[in-house]
Amino acid sequence: MRRLALAISAISVLATALPGVAEAQSRERPDGRDRNERPGAEGQDQERARPRPLAPLRRQANVGPCPFVKILYDAARYVELENNQASASAVGYTGEIEGVSAGCSYQGDEPITVDFNVLFNLGRGPQAQGDQRTYRYWVAVTERNRAILSKEYFDLPVNFDGQQTAQIEQQQRVVIPRAEATTSGGNFEILIGFDVTPEMAAFNRTGSRFRPQAGVGGAQ
């Protein structure tokens, strides 16, 4: 419900030297009419047309914390290596999940709705064939530090348009049912990662990496 915010200011007039002038000023308006005079139709129209400041809508707080949203380290990067050779000359397509921002909402016994943005940096190395590539990534909901509750895969089509790198942001939404009203969002985690091969995961696990501009740089 919108409520008008009315700002009321109290002005004290001290007029000891010229009480008559002060009394006249208190009665008169800037247009010369008496303040006690009722405005005519024109004045009423002007009053109705005058914009009223609106107070900002209140945002209701959640009944508990939001789920943790994380990037899985082993799947945070996607690096194609020809013949599994860890050298810049062997790099094909690359990808890196640069970051994620998220927020959630839930009240009473409602399910937890989590909206988040994922930022991807993609690249083409010397072994990349073509200007287009469809990457694949997944989003998993887990019971915190326990089992996976759900996992969904998404396609990420990229057109490099003649460039070596591209940056894409995708928006996603996850809805998590709750067994009861006392179930907190802190009991859940949302994990994000590329759909990588075991070899890619092992390469990521070593801490080695090729940035998206690997086509013009070396291993880092």
Rank of each mutant, 00 (worst) to 15 (best):
L81Y: 04
P67C: 10
R48H: 08
A76F: 04
G125A: 03
D31G: 14
F68S: 14
L149S: 10
G217T: 14
N121Y: 03
G217V: 07
I192E: 00
R35A: 15
V91S: 05
I176K: 00
F154T: 05
R48L: 10
Y153A: 11
Q127Y: 01
D74T: 15
E152V: 14
G207E: 13
Y135L: 04
G99K: 03
N36M: 10
P126H: 08
A55W: 00
V91C: 04
R38A: 15
Q85F: 09
A166N: 03
T142C: 07
L57A: 08
D45E: 09
S101R: 04
S184A: 15
F120K: 00
P56L: 03
A86G: 06
F194Y: 15
T165Y: 01
N204F: 07
R77D: 09
T197V: 02
P39R: 12
Y153S: 13
G162P: 00
A75T: 15
I176A: 01
P126Q: 13
L81G: 03
E28H: 12
R59T: 09
S184N: 09
P67R: 05
P198R: 04
A90Y: 03
A90V: 06
E42G: 13
G217M: 08
R124I: 01
A102C: 02
A5M: 04
V79P: 00
P212N: 01
G43S: 04
R33M: 13
R33N: 12
G64F: 05
S26L: 14
S9M: 12
A140N: 06
A202R: 15
P39K: 09
F203M: 11
R58H: 07
Y135G: 01
L14M: 12
E199N: 11
G95Y: 03
N117S: 12
R59M: 06
A24Q: 11
E152R: 14
T197H: 04
L18I: 10
L6E: 08
A147N: 15
Q129E: 14
Q163E: 05
F188E: 01
F194M: 06
Q46S: 11
S101V: 07
V141E: 07
P198T: 05
N159G: 09
Q46V: 09
P51Q: 10
A219H: 08
A5H: 04
G193Q: 02
Q172N: 14
S150N: 15
T206I: 14
A201H: 05
A7C: 11
P65N: 12
S12V: 09
V13G: 08
V139G: 00
P212K: 01
R59S: 07
G130D: 10
R59F: 06
A201C: 09
N83P: 02
E199L: 05
L54D: 01
E96V: 09
I148Y: 15
Q164W: 03
P177M: 05
G125R: 00
E42F: 04
E47P: 02
T183M: 15
A75M: 06
P177Y: 05
E199Y: 07
C104E: 00
G20F: 04
I97W: 02
A15G: 15
F120W: 00
L54T: 01
G130L: 05
A202Y: 14
R136N: 10
Y106C: 01
L14A: 13
A181E: 15
D131L: 06
R3W: 02
E28A: 15
P53C: 00
A140M: 07
T183H: 12
N145M: 12
T183K: 12
F210R: 05
V100H: 00
A15T: 10
I112Y: 03
S184Y: 07
R38P: 07
A76T: 05
R146S: 15
